[in-house]
Every structure is written in structure tokens, then in C-alpha cells.
């Protein structure tokens, strides 16, 4: 067991609940919220936002490019799919020599995964504009850029928000692997508690519940955003 101090549940000094292998101990959660759960939770939010944010910017740029140049769509899709199949632990193995046990090393696969989810969704959204709508737009004298900003992007919003929902929820879940590279995110308390004998259930459940709650909260925000952005009946 490593020497991370207060993060580790200390069975020797714990309450009877903690030492007794009970299913869930509220007193532990209360005692360790400030030193364990809250900082890991904040880290987890950061990991997710960076991964989805950077992934979205890259996916958006790639999708715009593929939308304009249809030939590159398949190559991009293949590369993206290939990235998705690489186990994240293997990616860590490759990246650690270059970036060390850093956030960068964690974020690279997380960004990759969200990119792989977002890219096809954004591209499908951009292509969702009905042909007659595009013909009317061109026929009225909209420039290419105007067609994109006034017609294609607004019509892509449902697909983009849909992609973001999947990307955010799966990234919240996948971000637990960051704990393999050090104490970061809500994966860390789960990982550490699993190493106890017997595993410390309270910590696993509490961190797990926070992961689930975070995913649901992000999803709710996106649902509300969609409702605010997309006002036309479909």
C-alpha cells in the first residue's frame, strides 16, 4: 500500500462501520469528503471537460474539412476507428516514456475517444440538411460560408448535441482509468479501495456513485442546452 496518507482509509483507526466490512459507511464519506472525494471529483470534472472540449474542437475542425472535401471522410473515419480499438492501457504504455505520468498522458487517449465519437456525429449533422433546402439556399444567392453558418450548422445542432451527450457520458466513465497514472480523478479512490483486503466497499460505492451522478449531471445540462438551442419543431 502506498503512503498517500489521508486518502487511504485507515482500518486501524476507523469507525466500527469502516473496520467491520459493512456495505456503506456514511461516517466515512463525511470524514473523507474534503480530503478524498471532493478533490478527486473536481479532478474528474476537469479531466472530462478537457477531453471533451479538446476532442470537440478537433472533431469539429475535421468534420468541417471532411464536409468540404468528401474524399477524406473515409480515411479519417478509418483512422478514428483504429484509434478507438487500441486499449487505453496500451496507449499509456506508449505515451509514458514521452510525457511521463502526467495529465497529458491521460488526456491523449481520452481526447482520442471523444474525438472518435464526436467526429461522425458532427459530420452526419452537417450532412443532414435536406438537398432541397441546400438548393434553395444556393438558388437564393447564399455564399458557401453563409450556407454553412445559416443553414448547415443550425441543422446539425441536434446531431452535435447528441454526439456530445454520448461523448461526455462515456468520457466520464473512461476517465476513471486516469488512476493508473497516479491519483487523479474518481478512479483513484476506487482503485485504491480495491487493493485493500477485503476491498473497502464504501469508498468504491461512493466514488462510483459520484461518477454516475456526474455523468447524469452533464447529460442533463446538455439536454437543457438542446432544448434552449433547438426551438424549431421536428
Amino acid at each position: 500500500m502506498n503512503a498517500a496518507g489521508p486518502v487511504i482509509p485507515n482500518f486501524g483507526q476507523g469507525s466500527s462501520c469502516e473496520t467491520g466490512d459493512h456495505v456503506f459507511c456514511w461516517d466515512w464519506v463525511r470524514a473523507h469528503w474534503g480530503d478524498t472525494l471532493e478533490p478527486r471529483f473536481v479532478e474528474h470534472v476537469e479531466l472530462t471537460l478537457i477531453a471533451v472540449g479538446v476532442g470537440f474542437v478537433l472533431a469539429f475542425a475535421l468534420a468541417l474539412y471532411a464536409h468540404r472535401h468528401r474524399r477524406v471522410d473515409q480515411p479519417i473515419g478509418l483512422v478514428a476507428a483504429a484509434i478507438y480499438t487500441i486499449p487505453s492501457l496500451a496507449i499509456f504504455q506508449i505515451l509514458v516514456p514521452y510525457f511521463g505520468l502526467t495529465t497529458t498522458t491521460v488526456e491523449i487517449p481520452l481526447v482520442g475517444y471523444s474525438l472518435v465519437i464526436l467526429y461522425p456525429n458532427i459530420l452526419a449533422g452537417l450532412r443532414a440538411a435536406p438537398p432541397e433546402v441546400l438548393e434553395a439556399a444556393r438558388g437564393m444567392g447564399l455564399r458557401r460560408r453563409e450556407v454553412l453558418t445559416r443553414v448547415e450548422l443550425p441543422l446539425a445542432l441536434p446531431a452535435i448535441v447528441g454526439g456530445l451527450r454520448i461523448a461526455v457520458v462515456s468520457t466520464v466513465s473512461i476517465a476513471t482509468i486516469a488512476s493508473f497514472l497516479g491519483e487523479k480523478g474518481l478512479g483513484a479512490p476506487i482503485f485504491l479501495a480495491l487493493r485493500d483486503a477485503p476491498p473497502f466497499k464504501t469508498e468504491i460505492y461512493a466514488a462510483g456513485a459520484l461518477v454516475v451522478g456526474l455523468a447524469l449531471a452533464f447529460d442533463l445540462v446538455l439536454v437543457l442546452a438542446r432544448r434552449a438551442l433547438i426551438r424549431w419543431p421536428r
Binding site: 435536406p130 432541397e132 433546402v133 441546400l134 438548393e135 434553395a136 439556399a137 444556393r138 438558388g139 437564393m140 444567392g141 447564399l142 455564399r143 445559416r150 443553414v151 443550425p154 441543422l155 445542432l157 433547438i230 424549431w232 421536428r234
Partner: peptide, 22 residues
């Protein structure tokens, strides 16, 4: 230029092509 030309010509098509989000 095509864009200038088109802005001076009304265009109506069978499928109408109204912008559904507007």
C-alpha cells in the same frame, strides 16, 4: 458573380426548401 445574380432572381422549387430551423 453567381451570388449577385441569384440575389436578383426569385427561385421557387417543387420541394420548396424552406429552412426548417427558421
Amino acid at each position: 458573380a453567381p451570388v449577385e445574380l441569384r440575389r436578383g432572381i426569385g427561385y421557387v422549387i417543387q420541394q420548396v426548401g424552406l429552412f426548417p430551423h427558421m
